[in-house]
Simulated assay, not measured.
Amino acid sequence: MPASEVSAEAIAARLSAVGLTTRVEEHDGSTSIEAEVPECLSAETWREVLEVVAEADRFGLLATSLNGRTLWAVVHKAVPATGDVGGPGHQR
């Protein structure tokens, strides 16, 4: 299992351990983790949640009046090193 997948699964497991229901999705260049956040989450749990998602490459919180609050995190998959790379973000 690639390191990015292991990292994403670990993040999902730790979020589940604090009582959040998680969804993990594989994409071409990343793995995403989402969790619905209940309205009444203690300050201590928030701190733990933030420590967990800080291990991701990106994370955020989407809050709407219709769907509540969704925490998301993204772990990028490693790009294979090749001799045919034209610079950051430009691989042939």
Results as ranks from 00 to 15, higher is better:
V49Y: 04
V49C: 01
V49G: 01
E51I: 05
E51D: 14
E51R: 15
V52Q: 11
V52M: 08
V52H: 06
V53T: 08
V53A: 01
A54V: 01
A54P: 00
A54S: 08
A56K: 10
A56G: 08
A56V: 09
D57K: 07
R58E: 14
R58Y: 04
F59M: 08
G60A: 03
L61M: 11
L61Y: 09
L62Y: 02
L62M: 09
T64C: 01
T64Q: 01
T64F: 00
S65R: 15
S65F: 08
S65D: 14
S65H: 09
L66E: 15
L66T: 15
N67G: 08
G68I: 13
R69Y: 02
R69I: 14
R69S: 13
R69N: 03
R69Q: 10
T70N: 05
T70H: 02
T70S: 05
L71Q: 09
L71I: 10
W72Y: 14
W72R: 05
A73Y: 06
A73T: 13
V74N: 09
V75G: 03
V75E: 14
V75A: 08
V75N: 07
H76Y: 12
H76V: 04
H76S: 13
H76A: 14
K77F: 07
K77L: 09
K77T: 05
A78N: 11
A78E: 14
A78S: 13
V79P: 00
V79L: 07
V79K: 11
P80K: 12
P80F: 01
A81D: 11
T82H: 05
